[in-house]
Write a protein that binds this DNA or RNA. Structure first.
Lengths: 199, 199, 199, 199
DNA sequence: TATGAATGAGGCTTCATTCAT
DNA sequence: AATGAATGAAGCCTCATTCAT
């Protein structure tokens, strides 16, 4: 009986994890299809084989699902960004690898938004934190005299803005590599540096 | 009698224009207070002295109100950006005045977003078009050899990203002037240029 | 001024009659297109170049329009039925001409009903009254011994039922003449009489 | 445990069936009281102890309820008509029993219609199909030479018309038996046959 | 009389959530 | 834990009607 119960219990836990994942997948799908604002809990449930009551065993609301998805994104992106930076040896490599990791992720997770729908930014604190870590490293570089003193809040904002906007270009079909080269060139030398950039 | 009819007609049209403006103002308010996703048509109506049916004489949905607000924003921003550019004589002045116009507008229209709410971007095609015009001018500059050849799609994206993200900093209290200097420096010379920038 | 007023007044009266007719025509159209139950006053107004307030100068409700249309129908049908009967010299001619007049009218006023809509019967007291007059004449015939004594309520019902149902066949494409022959034969001799009826 | 589950399931399904029946009963009532056109979904719900949302678990609209009621009528009437015909051995019995079954049903389901309301016909394809089956049997009789050749579409229409109109008389208080005798006499011998019919 | 915007009641429907099974 | 029907609040929207012009 114990053995049986144990088997049953682990089967259940498996099911629990599966159900949670099922709901998250449904959320990803409907958020992409309809846009956050238009999605209802029922829409998420409908994209699922589960019963409506089951949803509430896992999430409290669509916002809750959304935040979980964002954390999931962050969980994927941040290690990649960190790895990219740690593998770099020059300022250029540092920026280039970071942008490249981010744009590759954007290309992977690209999905169609409904035309006319209001666009959302998947920029949770968690995702932005990836850039925050970049900032910390830049702070370090500034302290070491490798980079000039500057307003790091502004720099984070500028990096974030360029990263997210170029990510849209990448989602629209641009190459992650050329987008990364462009962004890196801008931050290393501004517009004049672009002339030295192969397209 | 003509005068009377005319007065009557204009009084009516005045009321209509006022009602439309009343609804737009209510929309501005509740979008700022609650965030787009959470707002309902009823919320907008409730922020109004009008009857519910009246709303539908002017707009079809909250999306409709939102788009009208965006167009209104565009109508305000674009002339300012254009004027800023036309008054500039150097590349630096060109960028600086454009950013400054945009950040000043951001500072004016700053309003509190609900913490935790999903952020929206007020970047309609119309607003972005302001940057599109900038792009045209840059294209001209490229043609004249003042600027290197580059991917203007990427450049527009980068300018847009920096402008919108720094605008958030400005809404959070940063100075439009210093944000403009920062953004200008980045695009003129990249990170190295920041050392030459007084904070 | 008098002359002018008079002209103005008659122009107005013309307009009044025209407006009423415009509304009735719109009612005919939308009742045929959508079915009575689905039609709203607004639908009728929308099928009109008139303003909504104007409707209420002529009718109180869609029911009011509907009744006016029925009266109009009755006004058309009854004289035709009466003329048909008065021109008949035998029982057979009497029935045949009556049915024929009715079916011809049905053929003329045939219009498509929306599939799936609940069907309505245009059998107002006024329309039925056309058959009531037939009944009176039959009563007379009974009194004169030309027809056997019977329940005239039942007979009116039977004639009405046959007339309206065969009218549907006629609206669906059947010939008024053959439908009239059929109905006449039934009432003169029942099923056996049909063998003597040329198709 | 199985038994428990089974009981649970059937208890649920019982409730579901009861709710559906509750709504249909409410529909029957309000359609009879107000006429189809005037009824709203809310009227049906109000005639029920159920919550408004519950209605939509069972039906999509008032039309949906109406069609279900018609099917229910058909389900009741058709077996009766079929049994009536199958028990008949002569043409007269055949017609008489069919009409009688129909009129008895009409008498049972008689209910007050609102005066002045537009009348509806409960003649769905399903109900008419009862007469269609009659037609098939008549076709057979025609093939066997028992009845003369004729337009069976017209005959179905005539039978339907007489049946539905006399049913109204029956709902108004006439005897099903005498109505059946009348209708049978008409179809067997036309008006002349009525003299042989005891009232 | 004609107009057409304003009104707010109220119909339609979906929603989030509960809870008995 | 899973189910899915029930709930009723509440959003959406149209409606009939009024009334100032």
């Amino acid at each position: 009986m114990d053995a049986h119960a144990k088997t049953a219990r682990s089967r259940r836990e498996l099911t629990k994890a599966q159900n949670r994942e099922t709901i998250l997948a449904a959320g990803r799908q409907v958020f992409a299809e309809m846009g956050f604002a238009a999605v209802t809990v029922r829409d998420i449930i409908r994209a699922t084989p589960l019963a409506s009551g089951t949803f509430y065993n896992y999430f409290k609301s669509k916002e809750d699902v959304y935040l979980a998805l964002r954390d999931e994104v962050a969980l994927t992106v941040r290690p990649r960004l960190r790895a990219a930076r740690q593998g770099a040896e020059t300022a250029e490599g540092f920026l280039f690898e970071s942008f490249l990791a981010f744009f590759r992720f954007a290309a992977e997770s690209s999905s169609e938004q409904p035309t006319g729908a209001v666009r959302f930014r998947m920029d949770s604190p968690e995702v932005v934190a990836g850039f925050g870590e970049l900032r910390e490293d830049i702070d370090t570089a500034v302290a070491q005299g490798l980079l000039p003193a500057m307003d790091t809040g502004f720099l984070t904002a500028a990096l974030t803005g360029v990263a997210f906007e170029l990510a849209e270009q990448v989602k629209g079909g641009a190459e992650p590599e050329s987008a990364s080269r462009f962004a890196t060139a801008i931050f290393l030398g501004g517009l004049p540096a672009l002339s030295r950039q192969p397209d």
